[in-house]
Amino acid sequence: MHPAVSIILFTTLSGMGFGLLAFLGVGIPRVEGWVAAVFFAIGFALAGGGLLFSSLHLGHPERALKAFTQWRTSWLSREAWASVATLGVVGVFAAALVVFGVRIAPLGWLGAAGCIATVYVTSMIYASLRSVPRWHHWSTSALFLAYSASGGALLAGQRWPAVAVLVVTGVGQFLAWRAGDARYAACGSTVGSATGLGHLGRVRLFEPPHTGDSYLTREMVFVVARKHARKLRSIALLLAVVLPVGLLLLPAFHHLGAAVAVLSHLAGVLCVRWLFFAEAEHVVGLYYGRRPA
C-alpha cells in the first residue's frame, strides 16, 4: 500500500496522544494546575492534530461530517465517533481539573477507556481488510495498542512502566513481522485464483491493462525493496524501542534523557508505520504481476 504521509502522521501522533490522555485520565501522573494544563495540551495536540492530518487524506474534507453516519458497519465511521466522543469526555475532565481543581475520577476512567477504544477502532480500519493479508490479523490491533501505551507511558514520564511496555512492544513487533511475512501465502489468493485460470497451468501476467500508472498501481501496488525493508525494520526497532529503553535504564535519568527517548520513539514509530503501509501487499497486485513473497 502507498505509505501516505497524512495517514502515517495520523496513526502515529494520535496513537501517542491517546496513550498520554489515557494515562492522565487514570491519574498517572497525578498532576494539577499548570502542569496538568501542559500535559493535557500535549495530549490534545497530538490526538487532535493526528485527526486533522487524517482529514488531509480525504478528497472532500468539507463533507467529513457525513462520516459519522455509518457506524453500524464501518470502522472508519466508528473511529470518527470514538475519537470525538473521547476527546469530549477527556476535555471535560481536563477542564474541571485545570480550571476548577476538581478531579472527577469516574470521568477520567471513562476517558481512558475511550482512548483505548479509539486506538483499537483505528487499528480495525486496517485489520478488517481481508484484501490486505498482512493486516488482516489481531496482532495489528495489539500492536497499535502497544505502541500507543509505549508512547503514552514515555510522555507521561513513567519510567518503569515505559520500560516494560516498550520491551513487550518490541518483542511483539518482531514476532508480528515474522508472522506477517507468511500471511499472504497462507491467505490462498494466487494469480491462479485471481484469474480463474490456475487449473490450466502456470499463470503469468503477459501484458498489463495500461502502460502508465493508474490510481490502483499508485495506491495499492506499492513495492518496497526487500533488503531495504529489512534494514528499516532494524532501524525502526532501534529508534522506537532499544534507544528509549537504554536511556530509561541510565542510572542518572533526567529530563533531557526523557525528551530524547520520546523523540527517538516518535521517529521509530514513524518508521514502523511507514513499513506498516509500504510492506502491506494488496491482493490486487496479483492482477499486476506481483506475487505473494
Partner: peptide, 21 residues
C-alpha cells in the same frame, strides 16, 4: 455523499474502484 477517503478501493480485492483524479 462520497468524501473520497479511498477505503472502499482498499477493501475491494479486485481493484474495481478508482478515485477520479
Amino acid at each position: 455523499d462520497c468524501i473520497g477517503c479511498g477505503l472502499c478501493a482498499w477493501a475491494c480485492p479486485y481493484g474495481a474502484r478508482e478515485m477520479d483524479p
